[in-house]
Simulated assay, not measured.
Amino acid sequence: MSLPAAFYLDCLRADSDRLAEVARLGLTAAVPSCPGWTVDSVVRHTATVYLHKIEILRLGRLPDPWPPDLTDREPLALYDEARAALLNALEKAGTSLETWTFSPSDRTSGFWYRRMALETVVHRVDAELAHAVVTPIDRDLALDGIDEVLTLMVGGPWWAEGDTTAPVDATVRVTADGNSWTIKADATSAIVTRDTDAEVAAEIYGDPTDVLLWLWGRHDDSAVQTSGSPEAVKAFRGRVAECTT
């Protein structure tokens, strides 16, 4: 966990409230950032994610069987119930409860404080995009979200088999608001450091909100600036998409 637990809970409360507020503008609106989804899809997906994490915190392991059949539930009522229960579950667990996570280095409930705050803010933006009412992401949360995508998701031990569909073979730097991450990637690894001196094939940079949403595929390339090899940027974007979908 990179930021204080209270900060993540505050962001989770605010962004989950905003998601519900925007969803009440209309559940049938199409979500441009998630082709084939409507706001109803976002609400149901996020509620199901919340319920899944509540069960993980309760059991200390992945729930099985999963998911439950929730098709008969009214989506906003389900969502309101799930987000209240998630906040309660996180507060009850605290940050040091041993539990299942997908992090190689953090097997505590604190992991889910961060992950749920970041999950929520991205889906909040999905709902906002559907109704063209997008609001900024907290700067510190956006920077932390960039770090999560790069160090945990891209930089995780997922590539050893070399079965990636995006075999990047380049060093790329991502920079936002004076913070930089350097990613040296090939087909079987991705090593992420905060080294700003290494030579890179390409750099992607911009406002923290824009960079985070670009990494999550919610913004296209026009939202960020790039320098260096366009091929390296494209290949890197493919690798990010592979581990964030």
Rank of each mutant, 00 (worst) to 15 (best):
P104R: 04
L78P: 03
R18S: 15
G36K: 07
A14Y: 07
D40T: 08
S41A: 05
W37M: 02
T99E: 03
R73C: 15
A85T: 08
D17K: 00
Y50Q: 14
E81V: 03
A77R: 14
A29D: 12
P35K: 00
L51Y: 00
T46M: 06
D72A: 14
A29C: 05
D64F: 10
E55S: 11
E98M: 05
S103W: 14
D106F: 01
Y50F: 12
T46F: 00
D72L: 03
D17V: 05
A77T: 00
A30C: 08
T28H: 13
D80S: 11
R44D: 08
L87E: 15
V42P: 03
A84P: 09
G26P: 12
G60K: 06
V31R: 04
L25C: 14
T99W: 13
R13V: 14
V22E: 03
S33F: 01
N88K: 13
A23V: 09
H52G: 05
R73P: 11
R24T: 08
S41P: 03
R18F: 11
Y79F: 14
R44S: 05
P65S: 05
L87H: 13
H52S: 05
K53D: 03
D15A: 10
R13M: 12
E21V: 03
E74I: 00
K92V: 04
P67R: 01
R24M: 00
T95M: 09
K53A: 08
G26F: 09
K92H: 13
D15N: 11
C11K: 07
T28A: 15
A85Y: 12
L70I: 07
